[in-house]
Design a protein around this nucleic acid. Structure first.
Lengths: 130, 130
DNA sequence: CTGAATCCCCAACGATACTG
DNA sequence: CAGTATCGTTGGGGATTCAG
């Protein structure tokens, strides 16, 4: 599919509204593209993970931000949280059906990023600032 | 393609490294998922646009942030800037070949968001906070 | 082990004014 | 028209502490 076809498909949903500041997609886009949103979602793409696993996998995330990101994604119905009532606590996070649909669109992006970012960073770093 | 296949494809590039804080994709991901990055890139998906057009299209963006976003994307080689030496100034922005490749992965995401965000926002708004 | 609550800072962001 | 420069604010986000 060409880019212009993709653009036309996008516009059929919200003609002239996707760029509007009041568009609902702005809200969800903000959640997903929040500092840790994409990384958390992509981490959960492969399998269910426990809190501690996520904490270690998503390198650099603080406890506060991981909790906050997870809560936002859970409220949006993208992530499912299952807490086993045991001591010590055992909590598992997984993608909902909705979350899987989103991640299917996120994975190709991440793959493109993984492939092209080294060249981009090197090139940009040479000429300008980081 | 299933999600697990996508995950496997992703991992083949940077085994165990996409989530690393030092991974180059982190940098580009930050640029793209910056507050206005996705919106600017998607706006340019359809056609070349002038500064003023972008300013009006991407509703809510300030002049400062538009300039900053465009500069970052230009340094990354995703956006091409062409300034005609006339008075009054006339500057056009378009996607580079690299930028087109990225936007091809962004458009399906935006389409998914446009389709599902209304329900997500409504549902999330009912139970929790905004 | 999984979080919630608190403190605090800085840098991202917006508004305004100015320039070629 | 297309920016740059400056200033003020805010809330995102990290470190730490406490609880179940």
């Amino acid at each position: 599919m060409t880019v212009s076809e993709q653009v036309r498909r996008l516009e059929q949903y919200y003609p002239d509204r996707v760029m509007a500041s009041a568009c609902p997609s702005r809200v969800v886009l903000d959640h997903v593209t929040s500092k840790w949103g994409v990384l958390v979602l992509v981490s959960l793409a492969g399998r269910t993970m426990r809190w501690g696993e996520l904490r270690r996998t998503v390198e650099g995330v603080s406890e506060k931000m991981l909790a906050q990101t997870l809560q936002t994604l859970e409220r949006d119905g993208l992530v499912h949280r299952e807490a086993l009532p045991v001591i010590p606590p055992h909590v598992e996070y997984s993608l909902t059906g909705l979350g899987v649909g989103l991640v299917e669109r996120l994975l190709p992006l991440m793959e493109w990023l993984a492939e092209h970012s080294p060249a981009i960073v090197e090139q940009a770093g040479a000429g300008g600032r980081g």
